[in-house]
Design a protein around this nucleic acid. Structure first.
Lengths: 123, 123
DNA sequence: CTTGATCCTCACGTTGACGTGAGGTTCTAG
DNA sequence: CTAGAACCTCACGTCAACGTGAGGATCAAG
């Protein structure tokens, strides 16, 4: 599979795939002329990488987690990394929830204002 | 109130406060000699800014929202911005939740491995 | 055999929220 | 009155995940 097809099917740019390789997240064979060749599994792997990037993991953290996907052999470091990141994500969800609730309040207030522009202080 | 105290009480760096001023998020008086003077309310304001930054809002978005806090007068642009950001945050929470659940699976698998290292494939 | 699509490797540019000196002034406590 | 803490303004550095050409090789089709 060529890089363009992987990119399209995984929903990322060609440049991103080259970057992932540079970071050691995806390994690609090469044709004699130097073009990258990917296995089918690369598509799912890249989607998983995107999932983790979207959750704010750094490439370093992803690099520490990915080998587990391949081997299903977990070192203590991997397990700890997994749990650390899960905790970080939980914290992040909490922070986002707080912000969401706060924006909700403000939106209610602004709706109130729009329904009674001239008597806003009377509500 | 001087900048150092605001920084400590709001839990941010002095540099961050100067940056917020540069971005038009916090206004500070000046003493004749040029030192910044903040009102008490600055502490809460800065905490709110931090809440929004933590939720991934850009300073531009925060700048469009903050006037509402002061005046309680919402322009349609403010309301739209509030709702856009709320939606963005909801999406982000969803993405984080997906990643969290996925990590959960992996952690369960890795725990399984650690409990039966030699018979991992037999589980 | 040629042409247009796809691929390659540098390598610099981007964006945001600050960090980090440099070099100098002002405040405060003793 | 003096030392050290706190403040000031530049202004360049950082980090991450790519974007964006430049300049050139390779591939698939007619």
């Amino acid at each position: 599979m060529r890089i363009g097809e992987v990119a399209e099917r995984a929903g990322v740019s060609v440049r991103a795939l080259r970057y992932y390789e540079e970071q050691g997240l995806v390994i690609a064979d090469r044709t004699p002329s130097g073009h990258r060749r990917y296995p089918e599994s690369a598509v799912e792997r890249v989607r998983f990488i995107q999932l983790l990037y979207a959750a704010g993991l750094a490439s370093k953290a992803i690099r520490q987690i990915l080998p587990f996907l391949d081997t299903l052999v977990a070192t203590p470091q991997m397990t700890r990394r997994l749990m650390d990141e899960r905790a970080r994500i939980r914290d992040q969800i909490d922070a986002l929830t707080r912000a969401h609730d706060r924006l909700d309040e403000l939106i209610r207030l602004s709706a109130e204002y729009e329904n009674a522009p001239a008597a806003c202080s009377a509500t």
